[in-house]
Every structure is written in structure tokens, then in C-alpha cells.
Amino acid sequence: MEPTTTTPTRNTRLIAMSDSVSAPALSFSGVSMVFPDGTHALSETSFDVRAGEFVTVVGPSGCGKSTLLRIASGLNKATTGTVSVDRSHLGYVFQDPTLLQWRNVQRNVELMAELEGVPKDERRVRATEAIELVGLKGFENKYPKQLSGGMRMRASLARSLVLDPKVFLFDEPFGAVDEITRERLNDEVISLFQRNGFAGLFITHSISEAVFLSTRIIVMSARPGRIVGDFTVPFSYPRSPDLRFDAAFAELSGEISHALRGAHS
């Protein structure tokens, strides 16, 4: 059993600065991971994510980013170190949509709530709301095979939303969709973040996605992953798409890119 922190009360509005002094919603301390086959995936990683923070981790492929999220969610257990998090309101969007092919969008979105034992009527209401939020209204009765890749990803996003996550993990969720769809989905993630004020932990290979979304960016080294760079993103929310062409944006992206190149060697 891992220690559990108390969750701060939920804010429906934009998170005020005072929240950042509350206890972290998700905290890694000295987390290392060695798989049974000897693969050393993570080494001595420590950082916190608070409500109202959106932390993005970038790093070379295979450095242990997914492993970090799996440890946070409890799917894997760290070899050493501790994670403290309240998993009762945990959202986790995988790299693949992992929808259940035999359920339509509505019932897929209801799944997590269903597993959590939320009564039928209530989960229906929540699912309808989540579907509307991700822009899938009108597609409730479609099956996954009838959706495009981007729509499947939205359905997967909606499925995590029904539990009203206080801690939200994203593992390269938009790696497989095209640029335009990705930007649109990024806008959606930001508006969800502003609306719900969760503690976000996001993984991506795209530096511009990282800078656009986050309040803080962590750069990890090649395997075994450890933190080699830590950047604060100064831009305020809501962020307009034009921010991507801002000089400050480009400068920060450059610094992160530089740190990443160092991480690879």
C-alpha cells in the first residue's frame, strides 16, 4: 500500500494561485524501476504535481516515461521509492484509444464510471456531458470501427473525464493524429484543464505541444531516465493558437530542444 494524500476540494473555476501551496496531488520521491528482465527504466526520479499544474515530461524514446505513468497509476509498482496519489479520481489516457469494440461511443464512455459502480442514470448523464465536451455529440451510437482515429482518441478522452479526474495522466495521447487534429485536441485539453483544475501529467514527443499545454516541462535523460531539465512555462491561460508563433514560445522551445539533445547523448 502506498501512502495517500488528501485531495484538495474541487474547483470548478480557474485554479487560483493559493492552490499551488496545497499538498501535491501526485508526488514521486526517489522512484526507480528495474524490470524483472534487468531493464533499468527509471532512476531516482522525484517531482510533484499539484492541482492546477500541468506538467509535461519529454525525453528520448524508451527512457521510461510510460513506465512513470504506469507507476503513478498503480499498474506497475516501483522497485524503490514511493508515489503518493489519490487514485479514486484518476484519469489515464493511453497512447492507444483502447476502446471496447463491442460498445458504442456512449457505452464506452460510461465504462470507467460503470466499473466504479456509479448508478446507471448518473453515469449516463456524466457520459453525455463528457461526449459533448470532446465534441462527439451525434456519434453516441457509433461503434469504434465507424470512427476516425481522432474521434476514437476523443472518445477515450471522454471516458476518462466521467470520473472527474483530480489527477490526469496522458501518455502521448495525440501521437497518432495529424497536426491539425492534434492542435484542436490540445485546445480541448486546455479548456478541460481550466474548467476542472486537475493536476496534469502529460507525455509527448512534440516540444511545441509540451510548451503549448504546460505550466512546467521536465526533460528526462536516455534510459535509465532521470530528470535533466526542468522548465517553467510563463504563459497564462487561456492560450491562443497564435501563441505558437510567439517569440518567447520559440525561445523556450529552443531551450527545451537543446536540453533534449543533451539528454540523448
Partner: peptide, 21 residues
């Protein structure tokens, strides 16, 4: 697939739930 199983593991689904759903 393993990802679908992970979803059920995340919510601590019982063996029976996993089998049926």
C-alpha cells in the same frame, strides 16, 4: 488486448467483472 485489461486493472475490477465485461 493488454491495454483493455489495463483499464479494468486501473479500476480494480474483479475477476468476474473482467470476465463478463
Amino acid at each position: 488486448d493488454a491495454g483493455q485489461h489495463d483499464l479494468f486493472t486501473l479500476r480494480g475490477a474483479s475477476r468476474w467483472t473482467r470476465l463478463v465485461k
